[in-house]
Every structure is written in structure tokens, then in C-alpha cells.
Design a protein around this nucleic acid. Sequence first.
DNA 1: TTGTTTGCTACTGATAAAGTAGCAAGGTGT
DNA 2: ACACCTTGCTACTTTATCAGTAGCAAACAA
Lengths: 106, 106
Amino acid sequence: MNEKPAIAEIVDLLSKKWVMRIIWELRAGPLTFRQLQSACNDLSPTVLNNRLKLLRDAQLALNDPSRGYTLTDMGRDLLEVYKPLNQWAIAWQAAKNDTPETRRPR
Amino acid sequence: MNEKPAIAEIVDLLSKKWVMRIIWELRAGPLTFRQLQSACNDLSPTVLNNRLKLLRDAQLALNDPSRGYTLTDMGRDLLEVYKPLNQWAIAWQAAKNDTPETRRPR
DNA sequence: TTGTTTGCTACTGATAAAGTAGCAAGGTGT
DNA sequence: ACACCTTGCTACTTTATCAGTAGCAAACAA
């Protein structure tokens, strides 16, 4: 039924611009379409709508008309999985900005 | 020195097409430019070269002329961080393809 | 009615990615 | 020297993706 390995499928989805950001912005609770828009640097409704459709199809988010767009349980799980990446990223950013070329001698 | 939070910076990088795939293809050891190309579905040298530059700048990969392109220690660490995502993805793919709409009644 | 907010679409312009051809540098073998 | 490779890479063109703007219909409120 699935042509692709699961990891390839999710990497494809998360490689699309704004997808991870949208999930991130929904971390604290539901947001309306327009709230999401302004949370994501006023991205165009064209792209936002497209991404929300992808996220709904992937069952990572859904639209509860009375509350707004919300993460599903799976969406929240994905955020949990991403937490270690945050730790790694902090160490990475510090390390890559402290290289022989850019570091001044002491 | 850094305008962006580390997590935003790495999400930006990993959101670019082929970046994660390239890291993945280097998991087992060095590959030459052309080996990487064919490993990544014959992607154009234009994009591959661009991505390799990004990865070199991010110090996740480097080019050892005698061996080919290789992951740095940080690059390998990133792969480690991604392992849980693989587990999550398998469960996610199974769950999302077993929904009330697409599932036939028994 | 008038006004507001909702999700969303249509249309246009800009940017990123892909496809193809080919080059210069370095090695290898004759 | 020569003709061959493979290397990383660039130039150029086409196509896909993303962004910006305007605005609509539905739902509700004053």
C-alpha cells in the first residue's frame, strides 16, 4: 500500500517549507487560520492552506471549527520526538561558530 | 552573533530538499560527488553542489579529496538524533493509513 | 442592514529546483 | 608525448514551488 519507507515519507513532508513551523506554532493549543498566519510571519494563505491540507491528510492536525486548528495526538508525539533535536541544535550552533577560521587567536 | 534560535536554524537547513537525504546516504561511509548523485535519484549537480556547500558550511559534512564526501562527527550525531523519528514514522504511517474513511467495514 | 471574522480561492510575480551539456584539473595507462 | 578516464563543478534553460495581493461566500453580531 505504501510505496515509500515511512521515514522517507515523513522527511518529504517535513522538508516542505513551513510544515515544521506550523506544527511548532500549534504546540500550545488551537489557533485559527489567521492566527496561524500571523504566527508564521504572515505567510500567504495560499501556502498555509496547502500545508494545512497536507497536515490534515497526514493526520497530524485537524480543524475543529469551534476552536481552530489543533494538533492530533500523533502531531503532539512528533513534537516530543523533536525535542532531542533541539538539544543537539544548541550544541551544534555553538560548535560550528567556533572554528579555526573564524576564531581569533589568543 | 546568531540571530536565530538554533532549532530554527537547523529546521531551515533540514527543510531544504535533499539535505536530510544526503546525510542519510553518507551514513555508511564516504561517497564521491557522482556516487552521491546516483544515490540521490540522479539529482542535478547544480542542487547537489549547492547542498554540499550548505553542509560543509554547517560542518555536517566535508570533502576529503582522497576518500570523498564524509559526515563529520556532528553529522553523525545528527543521524543518531534522527533514529527515534524513524520509529515514530513507522507507527505514524501505519496509523494514518488505517482510518475510518479508508478502512473497509468488516 | 452593516460590520466583523472565518476559511479559503484566483491570479500574478518571484525564487528555488531540476535537466542538460560540458569544462578544467588530476590521475592512469601506452 | 598521447589518448583516456573520473573528479568536482559551472553555465544555461526549463519547470516546479513559494510568495503577495485581492477578494469571495458563509457564519455570526450589532
